Computed example of a mutant assay.
Amino acid sequence: MNLEKKLEKIEKQLDEMSKSRFPYSDPRIFGLQNPAASGDEIDLRELWDALWNGKWIIIGITFLFAIASVIFALSLPNIYKSEALLAPAEENSGGGLSRMAGCLGGLASLAGVDLVGAKADKTTIAVEILKSREFISKFVRKHKILIPLMAVKGWDRTQDTLIIDNNIYDEKSRKWVRAPKPPREAEPSALEAYEKFINLMSISVDENTGLVNLSVEHYSPYLAKEWVDLLILDINEEIKSRDVAEANKSIAFLSGQLEKTALAELKVVFYELIEEQTKTVMFAKVRDEYVFKTIDDAVVPELKVKPRRAFLVIAITFLGGVLGLVVVLIRYLIGGGRER
């Protein structure tokens, strides 16, 4: 019994010591209530009630956004994509520096010149030329596509005609009437045409197979297909003309060196080089698909690639619902809506 009394006495002393050491541990000293019931924190049930009371605001805003999204999606014109699959043409004959590297490789190595390393992949060069400002600007001028490129806002399927934006180009007076910011003028510049066309054109190269996919997007599926065909034709002609010009210069240079030398061995080398350059010129003239061979021709697309109207409607409607929730929460927090 004495032991029990001692234990009780020790417990009382410990309890008194804890109260004396932590006098502010009891929130009732200052009349504080339970923190969970404090007004500084948001009650989830109260928040739910606020959202429920504002349900018609949320539904109304969501409905308005849904209607607007449908109108907006239907107002967007269809965009069609035509594409062709190309393969690098076989190198039956090279041009200029590459052939000189093959015949003079030994002499060049003795002189410390790496002609083989100077050879560039013709497919890579052709792809970069296709994406260049000079080529595209020349393409736009050559085929007179500035108006369908810069002033079209749609395509009439029933009549197969382009819909011209009268705020950009006046068909009656045949004048550009847009009002761009200086220094740009009413008629689009070559740089503007390039920026527009490069966004419509897409080029991808498969690193494993070397195949090239070339595509063009436009309001008119027929025009998209036509531009792909013209791009393939023009890039083959461009590379061909460059190689022919290079080969002719090489022939002229080698012929001059041939007349100057008296060594029989060098004359043999020069004759071989002239023969190779002559083959290059002949090969270029008889072959249309000079750098790219068409594996799968471009066709007139039947289905649009843009816009994704269903996705737009869902996304804009969802945005409207989120905006409705935000409006109700703002009214609840700072609009005097925290009713008790």
Rank of each mutant, 00 (worst) to 15 (best):
N2A: 15
K5G: 12
K9S: 14
I10K: 11
K12F: 12
R21A: 11
Y24W: 13
D26F: 04
Q33C: 15
I42S: 09
D43M: 11
I57P: 00
I59C: 15
G60I: 04
I61Q: 02
T62V: 08
T62Y: 04
F65W: 03
A73P: 00
I79P: 00
Y80G: 01
S93H: 08
S98Q: 09
M100F: 09
L104V: 06
G106D: 15
L107Y: 08
G112Q: 05
D114V: 04
V116S: 15
A118S: 12
D121G: 05
A126Y: 00
K131Q: 13
S132F: 01
I147C: 06
K153V: 08
G154Y: 01
G154V: 02
T158W: 13
D160G: 14
L162T: 02
D170M: 04
E171K: 07
V177C: 06
K181I: 11
E187A: 11
K196M: 12
K196C: 13
K196A: 15
L200G: 06
I203W: 02
S204A: 15
E207H: 10
L211E: 07
L214Y: 00
V228W: 00
N236R: 03
N236L: 06
R242W: 10
D243E: 08
F253A: 09
L254S: 04
G256C: 06
V268Q: 12
V269E: 13
E272D: 09
I274E: 08
K279Q: 09
V281E: 05
V286N: 12
R287T: 07
F292A: 03
I295N: 08
I295C: 09
A298Q: 01
K304L: 11
K304W: 05
K304N: 09
V305D: 10
V305G: 10
P307F: 05
V313N: 02
L319H: 03
L319T: 05
G324F: 00
G324M: 04
V326A: 13
I334G: 09
G335N: 05
G335D: 07
